[in-house]
Amino acid sequence: MLALILPALVILVAFQIVPILIGANASFRSWSLFNPQKTFVGLANYRRILADPLFYGTVLPNTFLFMLASVSGGLLAGLGLATLINRRFRGQRLVRTAILLPLMVPPVVAAIMITWMFNDQFGIANVILEALGLEPVAWLVSRWTSLAIVIGTDIWLWTPWFTLLILAALQTLPVEPHEAARMDGAGPWQVFRNITLPLLRPVLMVCITIRTIDAFRVFDIVWTITKGGPARSTEVFSIYAYKQAFVYLNFDLGAAASMIGAGIIMVVGGVLYKVLSYVVEVSR
């Protein structure tokens, strides 16, 4: 049985576990990027992060908001799309491929394009608003419009991911229960609610948990679109850690912030997984 995981384990140890341990080590030391003294300071770095009002007052609320909105948005859109296209219709392949398009653009480039589309002078967003007779908006100057753009982009980016995986799961489902239910005269919604959804739960559960963790750690699109601004009001936890480590060059504080964030999401993800497992059990 060990043979099943041995190759994976070796690579994992070398290229993930060891670097993570080095990073974790830095969080207990005085370690600036430009002058790594590496003197042991205990929990001092953790204390400084936890005492930072920006961290608990802005960064964590932003992160949770982002996580909730992005995961539920992507999940609902993906579930809807997957069920809609999981049948034969004309142009099926075209639609399926079109849905996957966002996955084919590097997130960084996509985020740069989105920023340009929401530019207050040149962007298409304001052109549309003005065509509708509305006032143009300076999108990236306020916290809430900036966050909305970032969340929207993330949903856009991840909807195809949900769609693809849910579609694959739908295709592995057995046909018999569906047919039996239809014979019994159940409508499409009832079939979906009572047959499809329970059968999809194992895959949904994994998708939701993984996406929750990843959304909590989101970095590149937020960094590209807002850099955490205006005035640090849209910073999420990875941006905060990144800024500490690579902008302020406090690798120690950045590592400590990463560890704190990892701790939080571990608990949140664990609880979520347990809850979802429970739901699956109950619904059986």
Binding site: M1, L2, I5, L12, A14, F15, Q16, I17, V18, P19, I20, I22, G23, A24, A26, S27, L33, I210, I213, D214, R217, F219, F237, S238, A241, Y242, A245, F246, F251, G254, A255, S258, M259, G261, A262, I265, M266, G269, G270
Partner: peptide, 28 residues
């Protein structure tokens, strides 16, 4: 136990942001 440990490990590592270990990875 082995399966649970494996799952636990995977879970743990998924949670830690790249930011904290990409520079160690570079050095490694």
């Amino acid at each position: 136990a082995a399966s649970n440990l494996w799952f636990g490990l995977i879970y743990l590592f998924r949670c830690i942001p790249y930011i904290s270990w990409v520079i160690p990875l570079y050095l490694l």
